[in-house]
Amino acid sequence: MSVEHVNYLQPKTLQELQKGLKSLTEKSALLAGGTDLMVSIREKKPQIDTYLSLCNINEMKSITEIDGWIRIGAMVTHTEAALNNKIKTFFSALSMACDHVGSPQIRNKGTIGGNIMNANPAGDVLPCIMLFNGEFEIFNSEGSLRRISVNEFLSESGKTTLNKNELLMAIWLPIKPDKKSCFVKLGSRTEVTIAQISFCLSWKRINDEYLDIEAYIGAIDNKPLKIDEINEILGNRPFETESLDALSTFLSNKIRDIRINRKRESKLKIYEHEKLYKERAVKGVVYDAISFMKY
């Protein structure tokens, strides 16, 4: 008996990619940057029959502006996304999120697509994509491309709906030049930290009025949640203590409800005060996020 043989495929063209996708089984792994996959392989030690490495597919590595949209290839790294001028200008929440994923080394290798496909509830990228009403470009083993909305991409449980022979090629974000955005993450330390709560916000500012405020909160449930009520709660006075506290209380209650209804116990939280932490600490996230609207 010896260590089982593994296939390693690293296609260069879409044709080769298609062929590779066709050959994948339930035991196969898509290799984007590798920063999540390598950890998972080490922890779970799954039997992998084929690796399909995406690092040579040029169509997945570019950031381009097309017809009022930005197309971000799934293999764009966090560093590339964080530094890209178009993303910084039109989608600063995404740029901010990418600038704080893991450490610099992780950001240099980890990809937007990989982060999304990993579908970790504490993932920093997905809430931003949802905030911007992004769409997902999917490639399959028949060679066809389709674009789907977030709702079609994500299941109720927060996992992706793609099957083993499909692949996320790119993310499309519609440009809305008059909308600004920001991203805030609460972790256990400032840099290189997993989100306890993530929060992304977009707004339109006309003179001193703040309109069309949208927000998503992440890492509190199995997928990011839209805060529909935000405009109503913040009203016309988003920076006043009353508004901020009202929003904090609203979100705190939401987090508490999720906690109470949760069926699965959190693996790492053993003390009661740890379980209550998010609903207590969300106030800090709210204050920090809303303060960005001043700029």
């Binding site: 256990s188 400032t190 840099e191 930290t193 790492l268």
Partner: peptide
């Protein structure tokens, strides 16, 4: 900030690597 938590019922070491063991780094 450093705490190697052991589950009080199962005895499992919950923090067994540096993820979730957020030691003070050069930034902080």
């Amino acid at each position: 900030c450093e705490d190697i938590k052991i589950h009080p019922k199962t005895g499992k070491t919950l923090i067994d690597n540096l993820k979730n063991y957020e030691v003070t780094n050069a930034f902080d």
